[in-house]
Design a protein around this nucleic acid. Structure first.
Length: 186
DNA sequence: TTATTGATTGACT
DNA sequence: GTCAATCAATAAA
């Protein structure tokens, strides 16, 4: 799923305005058996409850005391697997995004990270559990095809707390794309 | 009840 | 390269 989401378009409707961005980086989190997942060992709490929804819903969590991250829930109900959307290329409503994210000086930095993406597209816990085929949030196939050899794979970012899973190759991104979160990391 | 730690970012050396 | 911001969930006591 993480692989397939690359090149897809994430849409966010806020009243009459519509924002869109092309996904260029995503990470897979494998539920109960993944020590780096919020659902490791079957953990379940109000925070991660929407991970247990059926595929096609949003899981939005608050982290480091100040940022939100958006996930696509992928499995059947009660199986808590999800894909973290880490970076995207702004397509529509770029001026609005710039207003929402004044710290970004370049367009390529508007959504070049999971927290940044949520700031640029005004995504917070209010959207947690929402359908990804809904009014405020939805995803469509991209118009630009992604070639198989365009997709690079690496360990996930920031999972140092789970040494056992630290090297798992579950981060997918478009090789050389300037909108990914870390240009130095291959 | 208290302590630790993040699926991060931005400022700074 | 280092580090602080800032808080909720989880772990430890």
């Amino acid at each position: 799923m993480a692989r397939d989401l690359l090149g897809c378009i994430l849409w966010r409707r806020i009243g009459r305005t519509l924002l869109a961005a092309r996904l260029v980086e995503a990470e897979a989190y494998l539920g109960a058996n993944d020590p780096a997942s919020h659902a490791r060992r079957g953990l379940r709490s109000p925070r991660n409850e929407s991970m247990y929804l059926e595929g096609g819903h949003a899981y939005v969590y608050f982290t480091y005391g100040m940022y939100y991250c958006l996930n696509v829930v992928t499995q059947e109900r009660d199986i808590a697997e999800a894909v973290l959307l880490r970076a995207a290329q702004p397509l529509e409503g770029i001026q609005i995004m710039q207003k929402l994210r004044p710290k970004a000086r370049k367009e390529s930095d508007l959504a070049s990270g999971p927290g940044k993406l949520c700031i640029a597209m005004d995504i917070d816990r209010d959207l947690d559990g929402e359908s990804l085929d809904g009014k405020r949030l939805f995803i469509t196939r991209g118009t630009e095809a992604v070639a198989g050899d365009e997709i690079a794979v690496s360990p996930r970012i920031g999972v140092d707390g789970a040494p056992e899973a630290a090297h798992w190759p579950l981060r997918f991104f478009l090789a050389g794309n300037r909108y990914v979160s870390r240009r130095s990391v291959k």
